[in-house]
Design a protein around this nucleic acid. Sequence first.
DNA 1: CATGCACCAGCAAACGTTTGCGTTATTTAT
DNA 2: ATAAATAACGCAAACGTTTGCTGGTGCATG
Lengths: 339, 339
Amino acid sequence: MADKQPTIKEIARRLNISVSTVSRALHDHSSIGLRTKMRVKELAQELNYEPNQTAIFFQQRKTFTIGVILPELAESFFSSAISGIEDVAYKNSYTVLLGQSHDDFEREKQLTESMKKHRIDGLLVSVSKNTHTYDHFKLLENAGIPVVFFDRIPTIPAIHYIACNMISGTVQAVSYLLKKGHRVIGMINGPENLFATGERTDGYIQAMQKNRLKYDPSLIVHSDLSTESNFEAMQQLINHKRKVTAVVAFNDYVAMDAMHYAALKKVEVNKDIWFVSYANLPMVHYLKYQPAASVEQFPNLQGKKATEMLLELLTKKEEEGDTSHYKIIVDSKLVVYNE
Amino acid sequence: MADKQPTIKEIARRLNISVSTVSRALHDHSSIGLRTKMRVKELAQELNYEPNQTAIFFQQRKTFTIGVILPELAESFFSSAISGIEDVAYKNSYTVLLGQSHDDFEREKQLTESMKKHRIDGLLVSVSKNTHTYDHFKLLENAGIPVVFFDRIPTIPAIHYIACNMISGTVQAVSYLLKKGHRVIGMINGPENLFATGERTDGYIQAMQKNRLKYDPSLIVHSDLSTESNFEAMQQLINHKRKVTAVVAFNDYVAMDAMHYAALKKVEVNKDIWFVSYANLPMVHYLKYQPAASVEQFPNLQGKKATEMLLELLTKKEEEGDTSHYKIIVDSKLVVYNE
DNA sequence: CATGCACCAGCAAACGTTTGCGTTATTTAT
DNA sequence: ATAAATAACGCAAACGTTTGCTGGTGCATG
């Protein structure tokens, strides 16, 4: 076992021809005679020759590998995304190098370093919650490695990104509730430093304006997304001086906690109070308390688009010069459950 | 921007010394004087030198990369597993190359090929449902690339693997139900060709024997895991000539379907009929109908252990000779929900 | 004063491929 | 027939590192 892998050299030696000829023969280069091509290919087959990719990577200064850094693989949003990423990469015979930051800024930095060393051709990243500086990404770009951000994108200019516009979905969500007759709509929003939090707020306000209703800031409460914090937020809404009959929750987990808390306080879900949330979960239908609708963020699609964007950048790069930045926004969309 | 990456050569040129000296200086080799070391390191720092890993990989015939092939990243079981894998790999400064087979045998083969070309140091794999031959893995091993199987393991000898023993958990599950007074316990099992299906059956039988009860094969029905099939299976159990008061479901999804179907048929869950399932899901607590208990399979742990095993094999390899095969079985464990 | 021994540093090969250019036959056009 | 074009292949450099071996100092030892 463990035979030495045959090399191009070996083939050349056996056939008494030069390595360059073998190489060209294997690549169907036009300057090699049909006879020799055949002989080379046959022997290659016979010896089970496989080109040494590491040698090729080295020689070509290209690895056909894209790095992916995201916060947490176990989160269903990201695992859907990576699934889409891998699919597109695979179809284009690229390979995926993986790293999770666990929302740790330092680890994110280390990962970018490590990936740079691995000479990835490009990077896909969804930044950690604690990322506050972006030099580590700039470093990659300066080294000619394009970076595409997805979903969690930094608030800096001159980057490529694809993100989901939470505003549209939020507008739809709030409008849906308004149409159902709700007038006092609460929102359990996320941590204030998150981009996605701001978008939800904007969407809420826009929807109110569109319907010529007054916006009451006290109806938007914030949670750090822990269960306790979610409970607390829900408590605030229940105790609000106005009677809140509907709640837009930051995501499904928050919604589940909120609904749970409401039930505890004898506020009946889908009777006294209604919920709309953002879809991270595939199995809302099996839940004890179901939100009436949920905003879909298309993680798989985002992953795919991001990868396509990156691959595009990789081919464009050869042609140089272009300094424009790609931005794609996919609209989120409200999915109303047929109760 | 896009400065040419400085090389060891460049440093040598600037310092008027040889490349070998620079290389050794950077590695703190004992045969280099302190003075030169300092000079080299300073300049390296200044130029922002980074060793070209692809060159090193090539030169050392080692990539510090492990491949991971699994069926479906979006499945929570596997995303937990990969999360554990990445963690251990990262801690040991290994890198993870990713591929999903989508339970497609051909794609699995292609992935192993691709990974072999990438010269991964080792492979972690959970085989696809349709994998019926294993030559593609043997090929890797013959090339000196160790393969460790996890969770979904082939039924062939002489392999390294880590798997979860479903028997123990199943015995616990059935025993639990027996202790609760149930005497007619149904089981919705999976496709018959799956290893995990057999183990569940075995566990069921063992538990019955242990309690000196007669085993009734007609109480075990099979599903292909689709919702329709799950419904059908549940129907069979409900219509069974004996009155089934408890059901062990293949996994949480199956359980959810089964419970849903039971409810539709006016068989009240956790009153007329009780469920135990296998935990793929983190949020059973939020479900409308909850199983009374669930068998934990520790995907994250399996991933970790598998990676540790692989890394161990990688270091052992240097010492050669050892042809033994590692096997680790982690026991599954029943988690009873405090209703 | 010669010998030996640390100590430092350089030379060159090697890893496996690709590719620009040069060389030799062979064919084609004039 | 002769120059010119073409076909088929080889030479050697290059990609960036590591590493075995060799060589040259300076210094203490015999």
